[in-house]
Nucleic acid binder design. Structure first.
Lengths: 323, 323
DNA sequence: CTGAAAGCGCTTACAG
DNA sequence: CTGAAAGCGCTTACAG
């Protein structure tokens, strides 16, 4: 910093002001400072900045890099946080890094708040971390008592059942993800949507994974008669169902229609073309950051749940039932 | 830190020694310090530590969270770096974060060295960053002049062609990934492996993606006769090929055998069961960290390429050719 | 083991 | 805009 200041004959404070885009320097000076910084390859030291500042302006995200929807969310959080002047420190959960270790790592980086992502699997059992404000995103917090931003499950399921019913389906099965995040809500929304149309619910146990979908499809295939439509607990599950049916010689959507939930990248593959329901990760992330900033302002406020309404994304995996 | 020291009546230096596992404290004292730290929720401030220390003991990784093989590699790098006493700062490439921005972010965190991952797509065109030592992992650096750790492409292709030829295949097509990382090497290794067996190479253009595989399969399906085996540029490509063939009513492996490259998670799906070739991410990561530490010790040394030998992973996607 | 001191690279607050 | 000063929370190096 001193090198930059000396090079163009200004004070270190001025360099600091320019690098932080604060008022108090002329345009010409700003230009010269930036030019000198670029020439010298100077970048303000993030550690010194965090250490000195009263606030770190750092948030953290605990998530799983192998979950595509969580990755979408984290990328959106990176942008949403940056738009509000915050950096986002990444805390990936891996087989060798337990949640408590990840929280400690993030706390050591002096994050002011922590986003906890848990869209499926074991991650949904994550506890609310001590000693740092947390906002859950995309997952389940029924028992947690923390702020929580996620998709409106009931609205999504209602869209999907309505779409299938409108196409003429009456025998619609649902592959449910056991005890995982959002699973109970989706299952009961499905039962309600079916019953309200005078249709019989048909739930088969599954999971938020391709393997889970494959298993559900295997169970359906073992019956005397297939349903005319199957709803996957999420896109990955739906994809497992679809692939297993196709492998068994069942045509999708000609023989059986399949729908998912999430609109993840797999739904867009040319040989998948999955009809699904979408919650924009960007809007979920914007909301989550907003909730976090409010939480930091008012640490004592009661935690609240926030729901984003999804939209239907029709693709090629739904057709009217045969005969 | 002072709170912890005061609580049990020792000096701050002693707390520092215990938290860093340095010699100079009795077991009993260590226990008491750790207990007090846990009770107070004390964690040493990472910023202060980096700022004060002569070295940051931080490395960085620039990668794409949406590439499963890169995620595997990063998880392995996290462990490999930790085993050598280094933290790994994550620099994900996203649609809104250009490589130069990611490098700056990591440099601002005072990383001593940078791992550049580029296993496919545009990432393979990444330039060697200025002002920070870089080790390329998994990708192409033919023109870069940087250290480079990746799979031995020729050995992997030879294993796969040998496996198919041993099963009796003679008409083996190869879906090549254009100009992407490792693509040229794999393509010419394929041509060499075929020619050395007296077989005719048959290359169709593709990409390291499901879409690329789907496109290659579509081209093969448009021919009068299918080959009896198809090799994908990587697993994702092979999966796209397989799924597209199956959708078209071609049975895999009964009618056509398919093989991939990487042993990524998709290869293990129950309805995929892809025969492929595996480079252990852990061994690649260990090697990369080793190369990095050597580079930090000897900044002036000539950059070198390092190859890890892959092994064959036989699954269910290969059968002898029909008739 | 303790105690006193310096300093990493910044930001903050102040008088000019 | 400048200049001088303090301090964020640690680590380092030293005499005891």
């Amino acid at each position: 910093m001193k090198d930059v200041a000396d090079r163009i004959g200004v004070s270190r404070q001025l360099v600091s002001i320019v690098m932080r885009d604060l008022p108090g320097a002329s345009d010409e000076t700003r230009r010269r400072v930036r030019e000198a910084a670029a020439e010298l390859g100077y970048l303000p030291d993030a550690s010194a900045r965090i250490l000195r500042g009263k606030r770190s302006h750092q948030l953290g995200a605990m998530f799983t890099m192998h979950e595509p929807f969580e990755v979408d969310l984290v990328e959106a959080l990176l942008d949403a946080a940056a738009a509000r002047g915050y950096a986002l420190a990444l805390g990936p959960l891996t087989p060798t890094r337990a949640p408590a270790d990840v929280v400690d790592q993030l706390r050591a980086q002096r994050v002011e708040g922590l986003f906890v992502l848990s869209t499926g699997g074991e991650a949904s059992r994550l506890k609310v971390p001590d000693r740092v404000p947390a906002v859950f995103v995309g997952g389940s917090t029924a028992l947690s008592g923390a702020d929580d931003v996620r998709v409106d499950n009931a609205a999504g399921i209602e869209l999907l059942v309505g779409h299938l019913a409108d196409a003429g389906h009456t025998r619609i099965a649902y592959a449910s993800a056991g005890e995982a995040a959002n699973a109970a809500e989706r299952r009961s929304a499905y039962a309600a949507a079916m019953t309200s149309r005078g249709l019989e619910p048909d739930v088969v146990e599954s999971a938020y994974s391709e393997e889970g979908g494959a298993q559900a499809a295997a169970e359906l295939l073992s019956r005397d008669e297939l349903p005319t439509a199957v709803m996957g607990a999420n896109d990955r599950c739906a994809f497992g169902i679809m692939a297993t049916l196709v492998r068994a010689g069942v045509r999708v959507p000609d023989d059986v229609s399949v729908v998912g939930f999430d609109d993840s990248s797999v739904a867009r593959l040319p040989f998948v073309e999955l009809t699904t329901v979408r919650t924009d990760p960007a809007s979920l992330a914007d909301r989550a950051v907003e909730v976090m900033l409010r939480r930091l302002d008012a640490p004592g406020a009661d935690p609240a749940g926030h729901r984003q309404t999804p939209v239907l994304v029709p693709r090629g995996s739904v057709a009217p039932p045969r005969a």
